[in-house]
Amino acid sequence: MINEFTMIDVAILTLLAATAVTVARIRDLWAAIMFTGIYSFLSASWMLSLDAPDVAFTEAAVGAGIATVLFLCTLALTGKNEKRFPRFSPVPFLVVTITGAVLVYGTLDMPHFGDPDAPVHQYPSPSFVERSQDDMHGLPNVVTAVLASYRGYDTMGETAVIFTAGTAVILILRKEEDPDDKADGSEEEAA
């Protein structure tokens, strides 16, 4: 069943592949970063077409927004130019090829794309979508329901991850001579 969705699907996938290869091959680091942003945009678009708007939303915000800014910040701090472009190295390529081949081998028994009989769609029964209307008293967004309630504990872990990352970044980059015991490592660098 090839329809317009398939066409969009193929087109976005092709663009994704092209972007990924470009990132791998482009010389300028900043350009690689920008292409990573593009990659995020594209994958978000594809996620959207795969009925995952929440993920698309997040991926766009994170991958294309925050991550790009962070990468550029780092690049500004470390110097723009990559000194030596890595030559093609056969060993990593071999590793990657083998890994990829194994994965492809693994796909052969997978339920096909969009197959309604896939275990993912058959189990648990009733599905989250069916249940959540009762459980959540009419909360429309099932993803939110699953995220915050059914798997709220995961999300708490996620919050903890973010908090950990914040703490980690401050720990790593705070000035050592900072005499202030409390918060804020960078306030005295005004001007």
């Binding site: 317009e4 978000a44 708007p53 766009a60 294309a64 790009t68 500004a76």
Partner: peptide, 29 residues
């Protein structure tokens, strides 16, 4: 195409992120 108009928020976000990316890049260059 998908008949899901509630995704438009996403488009708004995209344009915002695109802008921020551009500004960051400009600032960087």
């Amino acid at each position: 195409l998908l008949n899901r108009n509630d995704f438009l928020d996403l488009a708004l976000l995209y344009s915002l992120m695109n802008f921020i990316g551009m500004v960051a890049l400009l600032r960087f260059t």
